[in-house]
């Protein structure tokens, strides 16, 4: 059987993947750079933790509430800031992440800098992978739907999309809300897995981690995001034997990955063919194909965010 260490890595991978899939909808599919995604995860984690500690609500309800509250905060952030474009949006989301962190460090209900501890341990492998499965299903449905194509149109050329009758502001807010919802779910899972949360767990580096997963795997591609999450969850573990050199190697690894595969692991055409072939039979193999075809049809977004 699998030992506890492997299970832990698998659980952390699942949680990371759910969060990265949420961010992928915002950044990979819709093309809006968000640098504050950990803020949503934080909101979700604290919602779940406070509900279970104060109200003793059941686990499933906590998770749902975590997603809903995070999604609502996505709407609240999205409405004013999605008028901004490109890097101004990026800095506004970065600001949001920091504001959430500082706020939770100072509020009483969140336990301040001490964080919240003794959260019941409920998250296990099965729950995480059930959630991951649902997330993948929802994301693939969204990407294949009319809304998904509209989102991709916004990514490729927002002005042209508006000219074709796409209500870009409303759709961007929706994408933000859904992306934030899944970040919230992953936050809830995280809180109930580690049983201890601290505002600094969800700092800027956490946002960067999930963005790296999305970009590393290949933006907009669901198998790509999964692969990115897997590599970036597993690589730091594998690099543990390097001890102090570990993070140095991680930094260098990110640079070299980008230099040699600038469009992400699954972003290159030939590799994509390969993946398509090897994933045939799995139900998301067809999806990858569909996603790839749609992207190429739109104009082969080599540039990602234009």
């Amino acid at each position: 059987m699998i030992d506890a260490y492997t299970i832990q890595i698998l659980v952390v991978f699942g949680i990371n993947a759910i969060m990265a899939l949420g961010l992928n909808l915002i950044t990979g599919v819709t093309g809006q750079l968000s640098l504050g995604h950990a803020g949503f995860m934080s909101v979700g984690a604290y919602t779940a933790a406070i509900m279970t500690l104060r109200l003793h609500t059941p686990y499933v309800l906590n998770l749902l509430a975590a997603g809903v509250v995070a999604g609502l905060s996505g709407v609240v952030l999205g409405f004013p800031t999605l008028r901004l474009y490109g890097d101004y949006l990026a800095i506004a989301t970065l600001g949001f992440g920091e504001i959430v962190r500082v706020l939770f460090l100072n509020l009483e209900i969140t336990g301040g800098g001490l964080g919240l501890s003794a959260i019941p341990s409920k998250t296990n492998l099965a729950v995480v992978y059930a959630c991951l499965g649902i997330t993948l299903y929802v994301m693939s449905k969204i990407q294949k739907s009319r809304v998904g194509r509209a989102l991709m149109a916004i990514r490729e050329d927002e002005v042209a999309a508006i000219a074709m009758g796409v209500n870009s502001t409303s759709l961007k807010v929706q994408a933000f809300a859904v992306g934030a919802f899944f970040a919230g779910i992953s936050g809830g899972l995280y809180a109930h897995y580690l049983t201890y949360i601290n505002p600094n767990d969800f700092g800027f580096m956490k946002s960067i981690d999930s963005l790296s997963m999305v970009v590393l795997g290949g933006m907009g591609s669901l198998p790509g995001v999964l692969l990115g999450a897997a590599v970036l969850t597993y690589a730091p573990e594998k690099l543990r034997f390097l001890q102090n050199y570990r993070m140095i190697c991680y930094g260098a690894f990110l640079v070299f990955m980008m230099v040699f595969r600038p469009n992400g692991l699954l972003g290159g055409t030939d590799l994509r063919q390969l993946v398509k072939a090897s994933f045939k039979g799995l139900n998301w193999g067809a999806m990858a194909k569909q996603g790839a075809r749609t992207r190429e049809g739109i104009g082969g977004s080599k540039d990602g965010i234009a």
């Binding site: 970009v215 990110l254 990955m257 990602g304």
Partner: peptide
């Protein structure tokens, strides 16, 4: 990375940042 979109150099920059500080 000059010709490869905008997010790849960003991630690369983050890699440099982690590298230098650690």
């Amino acid at each position: 990375l000059r010709r490869s979109g905008r997010l790849s150099p960003l991630i690369s920059a983050i890699g440099v940042s982690i590298f230098l500080s650690t």
